[in-house]
Nucleic acid binder design. Structure first.
Lengths: 154, 154
DNA sequence: TATTGTTATACTCTATAACTATA
DNA sequence: TATAGTTATAGAGTATAACAATA
């Protein structure tokens, strides 16, 4: 009976042991570090995310981008304004429907995305340092599955 | 030579494939969902985090809590104000150093933490649904290691 | 003089609502 | 009238700076 109690207690995850809590705290921590380093490129994480969406060809109209990124359309406007100001993307009116702006990556935008990716990979190396290569791989796969299962771009 | 190129290309993770980017996006997504559900308890995730810190005995003075939670001391004041108002914790002046407030969990605070934990575990079940039990376990271990390695409470 | 907690204030990120141009 | 994008405004979450009490 004591064993039963002990193992029952051990089964019960404390709040801080749940994936929900840990993904939240860890996500914030890593995102903050990523944001700091991205600053040298004059980008915020969401700018980099938008560049990645365009590069992957997942969307071109601002409304589609907003849906994929799960942010408000008005926020896409300010992200695109900033990137357009840097020469990282162009807004091209769709001749067939002149309400639509097609966002297209420029060479500069492609280079910025590549640099942001280098930064993210360097951060990965530091963050994942304590894991074995196998663990890192399983983690990577699990995160991708979670992303897809939860409606984020894979 | 082609093989070399192919494998080199396959080695290169796109931005959205990095752990840094995915932990950030996934963390935000899960944290938002957790926050929504926690609202029935009139708590925000940081309130739950503070309860967990007290429950684990990791800190009692507000300054120590701030350090552990990596938030500004002034923010701990408002978190503690809210929790004290709900009867979830008490502020007790340290007689040995009357500048210090020892934050102590009440029964109500313990119950709230337990309820928050139930919510987090339910969310885990949904979020981890697509993973095999083994993957979920490895993910849990990896996340704990990452948390510890990056200075968060284990 | 240094430290703990508090208050006052301000900043960042992002959403909602109102508006314009086009359909 | 409905939709894509934009502008104006507002709110949540959190930090910084100034301050009070105590050491």
């Amino acid at each position: 009976m004591d064993e039963g109690i002990v193992s029952a207690v051990n089964d019960v995850k404390r709040l801080t042991d749940t994936a929900a809590f840990r993904l939240g705290t860890l996500g914030t921590l890593i995102a903050d570090r990523f944001a700091e380093r991205l600053a040298v490129l004059e980008l915020k994480p969401k700018h980099a995310g938008l560049l990645a969406v365009l590069d992957a060809g997942l969307a071109s109209s601002q409304l589609d981008v907003a849906k994929i990124m799960r942010v408000a359309p008005s926020f896409v406007v300010s992200l695109a304004d900033h990137l357009e100001g840097m020469g990282a993307l162009r807004r091209v009116r769709d001749p067939a429907d002149r309400r639509r702006q097609a966002l297209t990556l420029t060479d500069k935008g492609g280079k910025l995305l590549a640099e942001a990716t280098v930064i993210a990979r360097a951060l990965d190396a530091e963050v994942l340092e304590g894991l074995t290569p196998q663990e890192a791989e399983v983690l990577g796969r699990a995160l991708r599955r979670l992303a897809v299962a939860n409606g984020l771009p894979g």
